[in-house]
Structures are given as C-alpha cells and as structure tokens.
C-alpha cells in the first residue's frame, strides 16, 4: 500500500484508463474538476475527524481515485469505489485533487 500510495502521488492524477493531467500546481478541489474525469485525491480537508474517517470508510481518502460525474452550483455527483454519491459544495471543496 505504501508503495502504491507513493506511486499514485508521483503520477499526480494519471490514471490508466483515461488520462487527465493536473499540472496547475495550485490545489484544486472537486469543484474545479471536469465532469467525466477521474482524479486522484490528494487531501481531505474537512476539519472534522469523524467526517474524515467516515469518508475513509467509503473509500474516499488520499491516493484513491474519484470520478466526477456531474457538477452543479451547489453540489456534485461523484463515483468513489463503485458507489455513486451526491456531495454538497462544502464537502466537495474539502476534497483536494
């Protein structure tokens, strides 16, 4: 895992199926993502340990892929592992990709 994690980090958003580059360097949140693209989570910043560990249990943590399906002004739909979730703006802004 440690190795895989490091690899993912090094690849900075490169996925096997679809290539999506994140070379801006500035921290991008899910709200800045493009629908249909898969990203690698860099960091989760909810300032809420319980929420963090809840997200973790869903498979949403650093190094894991996350796919944005659609995006609205105040919410977005993502795929984490094999489940689809609706996230509100606050939460999607806390997920750095």
């Amino acid at each position: 895992m440690e190795l895989a994690y490091a690899l993912n980090k090094g690849a900075a958003g490169v996925r096997t199926e679809k290539e999506s580059y994140d070379d801006s360097g500035v921290s991008k949140t899910l709200m800045d993502a493009e629908p249909g693209q898969t990203y690698i989570i860099k960091e989760i910043k909810t300032d809420d340990d319980d929420m963090n560990s809840f997200l973790f249990r869903l498979g949403c943590y650093e190094g894991e892929p996350i796919t944005l399906i659609s995006k609205k002004k105040k919410s977005c739909i993502v795929v984490i592992k094999d489940g689809r979730y609706n996230l509100d703006k606050l939460l999607s802004e806390a997920i750095i990709i």
Binding site: T46, D47, D48, M51, F54, L55, L58, S75, I77, G83, R84, Y85, N86, L87, D88, L90, L91, A94
Partner: peptide, 8 residues
C-alpha cells in the same frame, strides 16, 4: 460546517 453526503 454541515456536510452532506448521500449515496445514490
């Protein structure tokens, strides 16, 4: 901060 996450 009130987060909302709902599995669809």
């Amino acid at each position: 901060k009130s987060f909302f996450i709902m599995e669809l």
